[in-house]
Amino acid sequence: MNWLKTHRNDVLLIAVLLILGGALALFLYITRQAGGYVSVRVDGELLMELPLREDTQIVLGEEEHTNTLVIENGTARVVEASCPDQICVNQGAVRYAGESIVCLPHKLVVTVEGGQANDVDAATR
């Protein structure tokens, strides 16, 4: 265990960082709450709000910049995206308040919100 002795500061630093990260994760996990609806933002602008309890499928964006958002069984996921990296598709489904799916190339952020959608019309737009 010579390495531990000569690298005491490194080990301390790693331990502190892991504990901080773990504490942050634990805090978020404990304070999580089921989502009521998802908000869809493009370039920071609220586009629509979709309730999670209604299954639906919607194509966001236009021409070459599209993402297909599916809401199913109280979860939201992007099933198809026209961007090369497919990060938002690979991310899978989100369901808890505060979780989000981000598509950087299209500046799209889909966020799960707590409570209920306050604009019913927005969902049918």
Binding site: L28, R41, D43, G44, G98, S100, V102, K107, V109, T111
Partner: peptide
């Protein structure tokens, strides 16, 4: 900053 959202907490 780019997405103007603070909702990347996870």
């Amino acid at each position: 900053a780019l997405l103007e959202t603070s909702r990347l907490a996870w």
